[in-house]
């Protein structure tokens, strides 16, 4: 039994010659909020897709509790307690919010075709439980009263929350959040940041976060990895990352570190 909930060992994935993820090593300790940052096209989402089973990496291992899971079907990986959200919200748009969460509960339920048809006491109990659980989840993410809305008709911010509710319904040990604050205003972003913290603190879920909003990242991350052109170029605590010259160059281009230093010096001078 290892202390890491997920561990990637030299994971690589390429698309027709383009290496999207290149020998990435990550160690995500249990109970951490672990952020992955990097410029657009750095391979962050591809890495998520490898972990959640959409892609099979060409080489390397993905260990979940020390056991390799790469190449397993996504539904199996999900049933083991890894949930995720998507960069562009992907809800079941023509179904209601309640139904979305109920579908998220799929792994937790057992009733089969026969139960559905003859409503055995067991399945009736399960049915009531699942409805209550779904309502509770909606309440938890702040969607109370929106349960019977079609997912498509919800405003964008609420759609994001609904997606998280659906992911939480699976009762995950690990939650992968792909740019959860994209397209949100400042207030919504602050709320969501608090919410993510609550997930970790109250539900003890480990979280891997892809995020572009540096304020969010620096605020809540326990540890950060930086990807650039598919390679991990830095890893460390938020303060370490902030002062890492390679990271700054990845974002600002060659010579960026010197530029940033100059800029900061200027600012300091003007303040003084």
């Amino acid at each position: 039994m290892t202390e890491y909930i997920i561990e990637t060992i030299k994971v690589s994935k390429s698309f027709g010659g383009l290496i999207a993820v290149n020998e990435v090593d990550l160690q995500v300790p249990r109970g951490f909020i672990y952020s992955i940052i990097g410029p657009n096209g750095a391979g962050k989402t591809t890495l998520f897709n490898c972990i959640s089973g959409f892609y099979t990496p060409e080489s390397g291992n993905i260990l979940y509790y020390g056991t390799p899971i790469q190449g397993m079907p996504t539904n199996f990986i999900s049933s083991q307690g890894i949930s995720r959200t998507y960069q562009n919200v992907r809800l079941f748009g023509n179904l209601t919010a309640m139904e979305n969460v109920l579908i998220g509960l799929h792994n937790k339920l057992n009733s089969n075709l026969l139960d559905a048809v003859i409503h055995t006491p067991r399945s009736a109990r399960e049915n009531t439980w699942s409805l209550q659980e779904a309502v509770r989840l909606l309440e938890f993410v702040g969607l109370k009263g929106f349960g019977d809305y079609l997912a498509n008709n919800l405003p964008y911010g609420l759609q994001r929350r609904l997606e998280i509710a659906r992911a939480l319904a699976n009762n995950p040990r690990l939650l992968l959040l792909d740019e959860p604050t994209a397209g949100m205003n400042i207030q919504e972003t602050t709320d969501l940041t608090q919410f993510i913290k609550r997930l970790r603190d109250e539900l003890e879920i480990s979280i891997i976060l892809i995020e572009h909003d540096m304020k969010v990242v620096m605020d809540i991350s326990d540890r950060i990895s930086v990807l650039d052109y598919g390679m991990k170029i830095a890893e460390g605590s938020p303060s370490e990352i902030q002062s890492n010259s390679r990271v700054i160059e990845a974002y600002l281009g060659p010579g960026g570190a010197a530029l940033a230093e100059k800029y900061q010096k200027q600012r300091r001078n003007s303040h003084a």
Partner: peptide, 26 residues
């Protein structure tokens, strides 16, 4: 009975988005 059951909702989710349905554990 089928439509409003776990099975029925699983079907509906496949119709809406099979990839996400699979990643939701179906």
């Amino acid at each position: 009975r089928l439509e409003n059951s776990r099975t029925g909702r699983a079907w509906l989710s496949i119709k809406e988005d099979a990839l996400v349905a699979q990643a939701t554990g179906i």
